[in-house]
């Protein structure tokens, strides 16, 4: 049996707020789901139910209290819930991509190079990477005069398109999408929907958060109800 690109099992996460008398804030309990190649699953549920926390656990930004996150990485299975930082970075470089809601801007780096970077990090030549980056930015209708500027001063929608291009430039087998269309207009939302469709046909497994129901209906193969993983309220 071929293993899933990603399988989460029994994930639990709580925050201990030491600055507030050590109160315990449970966010997720017993979250279990799998992703199949070529599908886009969507985390569903109201705000604050833990959707973003789940993506951050999968990507390694949040430590996991219990459970496992098994990801197929270069012929092996790595459990991200207790992988070393080095393993997590290797998985991020080659296997697990992430499109966050906001771009973390690096001072002085031009938009084109921000987008090209994940490819050069995997050994592509700068010329080849920039060419592909330019293609994506053009497709997302980012005006060409912005390509050689650092995105720090871009509008929210422009930054988000840079972020999407950066997340989509590689062929990562698993891709996490944290509201990638939140600040886009209808035309650009349609482009992103197309791009997600292409990723599916190329066999990528995707997990996303989409508040926009139109977008969600057009790309979701399956909804994962996150309220089922909400912790029982502690007394």
């Amino acid at each position: 049996m071929k293993s899933h690109p990603l399988a989460a099992s029994g994930l639990a996460k709580s925050f201990t707020m030491h600055l507030r008398g050590g109160i315990l804030l449970p966010v997720v309990e017993n979250a279990s789901f799998t992703l199949k190649a070529g599908e886009c699953a969507v985390l569903a549920g109201p705000s604050g139910v833990g959707k973003s926390s789940i993506l951050k656990m999968l990507y390694g930004n949040y430590a996991v209290d219990a459970g496992s996150i098994r990801i197929a990485h270069q012929g092996d299975i790595v459990d991200l819930a207790d992988a070393t930082p080095r393993q997590i970075l290797a998985v991020r470089r080659d296997t697990l991509g992430y499109v966050s809601q906001f771009l973390r801007v690096v001072p002085r780096v031009a938009a084109l190079d921000v987008v090209a970077e994940p490819l050069t990090a995997r050994g592509a030549s700068i010329g080849e990477a920039r060419e592909k980056a330019a293609g994506l930015l053009a497709r997302l209708n980012l005006p060409e005069r912005l390509w050689h500027l650092p995105p720090a001063t871009f509008s929210g929608g422009e930054q988000q398109r840079v972020n999407i291009a950066r997340g989509f430039i590689t062929d990562h087998p698993v891709l996490l999408l944290d509201e990638p269309t939140a600040s886009l207009d209808a035309a650009n939302r349609a482009v992103v929907i197309d791009m997600i469709g292409e990723k599916k046909r190329r066999g990528a497994a995707m997990l996303g958060i989409f508040h926009d129901t139109d977008v969600r209906d057009s790309i979701a193969d399956r909804l994962i109800d996150v309220t089922a993983f909400a912790p029982r309220q502690a007394a």
């Binding site: 201990t16 951050k56 990507y59 930004n61 949040y62 430590a63 930082p85 997590i88």
Partner: peptide, 16 residues
């Protein structure tokens, strides 16, 4: 730990 993890999910009281 991983830089992202320490900054996004600091565990020790002092890091928080």
């Amino acid at each position: 730990g991983l830089t992202d993890r320490v900054l996004d999910d600091p565990r020790a009281p002092y890091t928080q």
